[in-house]
């Protein structure tokens, strides 16, 4: 279509994918002349990953996130490279990436989704994390439970994800406990003005007294503050929504062959994957699964 041709080569997936795969193809042609056996091994299609372009510590277009690192690791094991489809992880993410038929919108794997996430086929979990309380160390705050009466007095930061009912479980559970007036919402439309670190920056600078944040985000940004911060898992009381979740890889439904290959790598390289998660400060819990080789 004319419009697409006219578009500036910006940060779209399409252009990125072309840049990333074309040299490989050229190499392939060259190698197929020189060495047919190697060429065959290289001829594997790239691992097509659906990913958020600006959502550290998970992923970004500079490939700095831990999901980028894990994607590279898997691709390497599969003897191929990663090609990314970038799309914001909001409503319509799967619809516009994995389940889209348009040429510019196709991919097969999401590196991190909750186990059992119904829009994709999930592998067994490779890590478990939890929502955590984040507050400055040594400032007299010590919160271990949502039932702590001090939560009615502190200024509490939480992430807002979107429309009704699509908010993190602590938001619902605070509301159930009547903690409403003193809760401050933080947007997840990340931009230069609102980077993902904003909520943790607010704890460090004292704009809020405490925040309740999903573990990987909290762990990564807390480690980058000058003020030492305490991270305490939020325990789930009786009748509460869960706060800890198993995270799996998601593969396009119906692609069992790819799922088996990805799952094999995940299992065999689990130590390296865990090392990457630790490097990024992800608070880890036991997934409750035993991984046998």
């Amino acid at each position: 279509m004319k419009i697409l041709g006219r578009r500036k080569p910006g940060p779209t997936l399409w252009t990125r994918r072309v840049y990333r795969t074309r040299p490989a193809l050229r190499l392939l042609v060259w190698m197929s002349l020189a060495c047919p056996a190697v060429a065959l091994a290289q001829a594997k299609a790239p691992l097509r990953v659906c990913s958020d372009p600006e959502n550290m510590p998970f992923s970004n277009q500079k490939l700095e996130g831990f999901e980028n690192r894990i994607a590279s690791l898997i691709a390497k094991e599969l003897g191929t490279t990663v090609s990314y489809i970038w799309w914001g992880q909001r409503r319509g993410f799967i619809r516009n990436t994995m389940n889209a038929t348009l040429q510019e919108g196709r991919c097969d794997v999401v590196i991190g989704v909750p186990e059992g996430y119904d829009l994709v086929s999930t592998t067994p979990p490779y890590y478990r994390s939890t929502y955590v309380f984040v507050y400055p160390k040594g400032k007299g705050i010590s919160v271990k439970s949502l039932d702590d009466p001090i939560l009615k007095k502190l200024k509490i930061g939480v992430h807002l994800l979107g429309d009704d009912y699509t908010n993190p479980p602590p938001v619902h559970e605070l509301s159930k406990r009547g903690v409403v007036d003193n809760v401050v919402g933080f947007g997840t439309f990340y931009s230069a003005d609102n980077p993902p670190s904003t909520i943790i920056d607010a704890v460090a600078s004292g704009k809020v007294d405490l925040a309740i944040v999903w573990g990987p985000i909290a762990g990564y940004y807390a480690a980058r503050q000058r003020v030492p911060l305490e991270l305490v898992p939020v325990p789930s009381g009786k009748g509460d929504l869960p706060f800890a979740f198993n995270i799996s890889m998601g593969v396009k439904k119906g692609n069992e062959a790819l799922k088996a290959r990805v799952e094999t790598v995940r299992r065999e390289r689990s130590a390296e994957i865990t090392a990457i998660l630790k490097e990024y400060g992800v608070p880890l819990m036991d997934t409750g699964r035993t991984h046998t080789k």
């Binding site: 958020d52 959502n55 992880q89 989704v113 909750p114 992430h159 699509t166 993190p168 479980p169």
Partner: peptide, 12 residues
Amino acid sequence: EVKYQAGQPYVG
């Protein structure tokens, strides 16, 4: 059911 957005799992 479990969902996720902006890298965060939640139930909706």
